[in-house]
Design a protein around this nucleic acid. Sequence first.
DNA 1: TCTGGGGTCCTAGGACCC
DNA 2: TCTGGGGTCCTAGGACCC
Length: 397
Amino acid sequence: MPVPNVFFHVDLDAFFAAVEQLDHPEYRGQPVIIAGDPDKRGVVSTCSYEARKFGIHSAMSSFRAHQLCPQGIFLPGRMHRYHEKSREVMAVLDGFSPDIRQISVDEAFLDMSGTERIFGTPREAALLLKQRVHDQTGLTISVGVAPNRYLAKIASGLSKPDGLTMIEPGEEASFMRARLLKDVWGVGEKSRERLANAGLRTVEDILACPEKLLAGILGDAGASFLYQAVRGIDPGIMSGETASRSISAERTFDRDIHDREVLESMLLELSIELMYRLLDEELYSKTVTVKIRYADFTTVSIQSTGENAVRDSSDLFSRARTLMRKKLEPGALVRLIGLAVNRLDDKPPMEQLSLFDDGSTKKKRLVEQAMHKLEKKRGKRLITRARLVQPGMGTDE
DNA sequence: TCTGGGGTCCTAGGACCC
DNA sequence: TCTGGGGTCCTAGGACCC
C-alpha cells in the first residue's frame, strides 16, 4: 500500500519581533517594530501582532510606521540573534523528519510521509511539533499540513499566529477554489493586475480559463505555474534544491547622490564585502553586475562576463567601476548602488593564463584570504582602504 | 505609502553556430 | 540576395518572495 504524501510547512510567527519579545519581557504585549532608520529611508522588516493592529506591515516605510504608531518600540534588529534562534528551531524540526528544507530564516518544509507510526496522525504530529518548538525555544509557529509542499505553504499562512491548517488528500482542488487570488502564492500585484485586465479576478475565473489563454497574459512559464497552482497541484517551485547562483550587496544612500567619488567609494565597499563572501564560501564567478537606481526609482543594470574568475576585491572593484562608468547617466541623481556576482561556481574555472602572469594573482588571493581570516577572528574590520575614507578627508590613491 | 536588502526565476532580443 | 530553423549563450529588465 502506498504511503500517502504528507508535508508540513512551518512558519515562525512575526519572527524577529517574537525573538525581541522573548529576550525582553518588557516588550511583551507591546507593538514591536523591527525596522530601518526612518531618517535613512528604512522600511519595516517585521512587526509584532500588537503593531499590526495599527495597520503596520512588512515593507512599509519606517516613516509611515512611526506616524501610525509613535508609541511603538522601534528596533534595528539583531540578525545574529535571529539566526541563532532559527538554528534552535530547526534543531527541533530535525527530530521530526529526515527531509527538511529550510527556505528562509523563519520557514521550512518537512516531509512527514510515513511517520505515522512514530508521531501519530498528521494532526497529532503537528500539534506535538508546535508544542516542542514552544517548549524548547519559547517561540510559536504556524503549521500547514497538506499532500504537497505548495499547498502546505499556503495553508500555514491561513491561521497565523500559532495556527494549524490541515488539507486532507482529496481536498486539494476544493481548497484552492475557496482561496482569494491574492492568497495564491506566486501571483503578485502585477500579475493580478494583468489578469484583472483580461477579466480574471478569482480563482474560479482562472479555473475556467484555458492554459493557452493564460499564456497570452502571463507568458508560458507563468501560465503553466498558475494553471497547476489553482488546481492544487504543486507547480514545483518549492521542490528544487536551489544552489546559490548569485551573491549581491546593495546600499541605498541617505540622500540621493551625484558625486562620482562617493558612488565609487560605495562600489569599493561593496566589492570588498562581496569578495569576502566569495572567499568565505569558496565560490568563483566570472560575471559581475552593477545595479543603479536613480532618484526617480528607475533601475538599470549592466553586466559582463570576463575570461577569468574574479580574483580579489580590487579586481572586482575595477570590473565594477568600468561597468558603472559605462552605464551611469552623467549628472543623474543616484539613490542606490548594487553589486552582484552571478553564475557562481564552486570550482575555480580554468584560468586563461596570461603570458606575463608571474603568479602574483594567486598571491593576491592568498593574502586576501589571510586578511579575511584575521578579520573574522577579531570580529571587526581591520582593513580600511584609502578610498573608504570619507570624502573630504583626503584620498590618496 | 516617497518606497530595504537578499535572493530566484522568466522573457525577449541579439550574437553566433550548424 | 530578401532570407530557414534550431540551439546555446549572453544581457537587460521585470516579477516575485521573505
